[in-house]
Every structure is written in C-alpha cells, then in structure tokens.
Computed example of a mutant assay.
Amino acid sequence: MRFLAALLVFVFHVATVFAYPDAETAAGVQSVTGRLAFLGVSFFFVLSGFVLTWSARPGDGAGSFLRRRLCKIYPNHLVTFAVALILLLVLAKPVTGVLPNLLLFHAWIPDQSIFNSVNVVSWSLSCELVFYLFFPLLYRWITRIGEKHLWWWASGVVVAVLCVPFVAEIAIPATDGDPLQAGSSTSQVWFVFIFPPVALLQFVLGILMARIVLAGRWFGLPLPVAALALVGGYALALLVPYNFGINATTIVPIALVIAAGAVADVRGRRTLLRGRTMLWLGEVSFAFYLVHYVVLLDGRELLGLPRLSVGGEVALSIAGFAVSLALAFLLYLGVERPVMRRWSRARRPRHRRAPGRTGFPPGHEPAGSAPRPRGAG
C-alpha cells in the first residue's frame, strides 16, 4: 500500500514537470492529477497510525520507539537533503529554509519558500516526526477507549477533518493562490493539509482504525468495494471547491481501504499487495518518495533537456521512474537498512521496566500479538 501511495505522488509531480504541447492540454491533465499528491500523502499519514498501532509491542518504552522511528526517517532525510541542496547550488536556484528543513521543523512555518524548501517532499517528514513524538501518549489514551465506542471516536475525527476546510475558508484569505488551486491560496492549503497539528488528525484516525480491526469491530467491507469508494472520493474531490478536495472527500475511503486491506491480508486472501514484487516495492517506498522529485525536476534541469514530443515526454517520465526506483534501492540498501540494523536497537539488552512506567500501557496483547499486514510496506 505504501508504494502505491508514493506512486500517486510521483504521478502528480510528473504532471507538473511534463512539457505539454499547449497550455490547454497542460491545464486539463493537471486538473485531473492535481489532487493525487494529497491523496498519496494522506494515505501515508493514516497508514502510519494504523501500522504503528498494529505492530505496537507490549512493554515497549517511548524512548525505544522514538529511537527506531528516527533511525528510519532521519538518515534518508539527511542524505536526500544534502543531494538536493547541492543540486540547488549547482543549478544556481534559490536556497531557502535550510535549517528548518534540516531539523524537520519546516512544515510548521506557513511560508511556501520554507515548507517547500530544499527537497520539496520532505515537509511530510516534519509531520511524521510530530506523529512519532505523540504516538506513545496517543496510544495510551486510545487503548483506553471502550471497544463499543471506537467507531464513534473514528467518526468524530472524520468530522474534525471535514471541518478544517471550513475554518480555512473563514479565517484565511484566499488572495495568494496558485492558478492550479482554483480559488484557494497557499496559506489555506498549508493549514488544511500541511500544518502538523491538523495533519495529526489523519494519523489518529489510523490508530483508531487499527484498534477497530484488532478489537473485532470491523464490519467486513471487502477491499475491492473500499477501493471503488476511494476512486469515487477522488472523483468527487475534482468537483468540490479546492480546499474541500484536498482530503475531505477521500479521508473515509482511505481509512476503509487500509482496514480492509489489513483484514484481507490477515485472512490470507489473494490481493495485488501480497506478491514479492509489491513487498519489495513497499520496502523501498520511503526512499523512492524522497528521491523522486529531485530526479524529475533537478535531474531534467541538470541535463538541460529541451521540450520533447508527447511520446518523448512519456519516455522521459518512465526513465525518471526507473532512475528514481534504482536510486531508492541504493538508498535503502546503503543507508536505511544498515542504520536500522545497527542503531535502531540498543546494543545491550535492557531489563524490562516495571508495568506502568513505559510510554505504552503494559500487556495490550491484541496489538502486540497481531501480525503486521504484508501489503503495508
């Protein structure tokens, strides 16, 4: 699932760097693909909450958890940050927000030159870092919710997500909008989707959906039906006002797809997500997400490639995908996996802490014993 989400972001960025034969064609294609990045990143956020809850370890301390998550995201971020920064300097392009980006604080700043600085896609890591910092506390709270109340809490989070665009419309002027944002503004988009406390709502929904499945409260919606609902939600996103199409129309289908996919996997049902290729793609998906935009945009400019025919642009996009995937594999093989193996766990075994003194509630057996969904990536 994680690679499919990264692929949606890739397609969105291909549409933005593609050299179209005319402005009308460009506008048409970009109007259709213009919400894909939001869909992909929203999927990431909900899936993160789901997978972390699904694989939570009884008695695991908050410090151990944070250590593993930082080893997972920060080395890859540091490498891609350095490469992107060097390319910006080589291409004599503006360099802004270096320190906030390096420290993964840039998503908090409502300035596009900051939150889209250096490696543009890294803003989502700034949100993920917030998720990880709050997960031990959120996990403790949410595991105390009675099983019969879980759907009510999930519904409440969805309502909160749906209310955010209304707040943006009322409180933030729509005066500095990108033409592709059709009546919205960069400030509104930042608040609706990038601002970490708001993004946290999607992560919390993922936690709740995992608890719903683990508690046996899932109502049995098949994965294909959930996927069709997601397609419908995206189609609706293209019709509603821009701020409401960012994730309001897709948040429920995303949650349903993730839960249905996990149930199908645990029950051993055949899906497209269970093959070896998809599992491998899931492993390299994080690295692919981090490298692809640098390859597509800076790579083209570095090579000085001119405008090509439509066929040539398609071929170039396919080549960009192949190069991004190859670099992602090298990043995974040379950085992510070695760091996780070497530093994600303490070298010396530690004595088990007394119950009640860790960052997680002790003995939450369902979450600790459940197998991780194979297709989650």
Rank of each mutant, 00 (worst) to 15 (best):
L256Y: 11
M209V: 12
L47K: 03
V14E: 05
R342V: 06
N243I: 11
M209T: 12
I114M: 13
D265Q: 13
S155D: 03
A210D: 06
A367Y: 03
S155H: 01
R276W: 04
L272I: 15
V98K: 04
R67K: 13
Y293F: 13
Q181F: 12
V295E: 05
L8D: 05
F3M: 01
G304Y: 08
F134R: 03
A227N: 01
V291D: 05
F219D: 14
G34P: 00
V294I: 07
Y242I: 09
V192H: 09
G320C: 13
N243Y: 04
P136G: 12
N116V: 00
R35P: 05
V189G: 03
L303E: 07
G312H: 06
T80R: 04
G375F: 08
V198L: 11
P21I: 05
N76L: 15
R337S: 06
P362F: 01
G34T: 02
G233M: 04
D176S: 05
L36E: 01
V157E: 10
G28W: 07
N116W: 12
L236S: 04
L125A: 04
L89Y: 08
S184P: 06
P338H: 06
F191T: 03
A370S: 14
V46A: 13
L129Q: 09
E128C: 03
A376S: 15
L279Y: 00
V17N: 04
H77Y: 12
P165N: 07
F50W: 09
L273H: 02
K93H: 07
F50S: 09
K72N: 09
S185A: 03
V120W: 02
L290M: 13
Y20N: 04
V335S: 00
V41G: 10
R372C: 13
R69P: 00
L239G: 08
L302F: 13
L303H: 04
F321Y: 14
V295A: 06
S124E: 11
I246P: 01
F131D: 11
G368S: 14
V204M: 15
R342P: 00
F203Q: 09
R350N: 00
R69S: 02
T250I: 14
D60V: 09
R35F: 14
P366E: 07
H149F: 04
A326L: 10
S185F: 03
V252N: 10
R270C: 04
Y242L: 09
G320N: 09
I254E: 14
R337E: 12
L281W: 01
V95F: 09
A319I: 03
Q202E: 13
Y20F: 14
A82E: 05
C163K: 00
P338K: 10
Y74K: 02
A62V: 07
R267V: 00
H13F: 02
L180S: 06
V167S: 01
T96K: 08
R276C: 01
R2K: 01
P253N: 08
L325E: 01
A226C: 10
P100A: 10
L201H: 11
L78K: 04
I142M: 14
V159E: 06
S64G: 15
V130K: 00
T143S: 13
S309L: 02
Y20D: 02
L39W: 07
F12G: 00
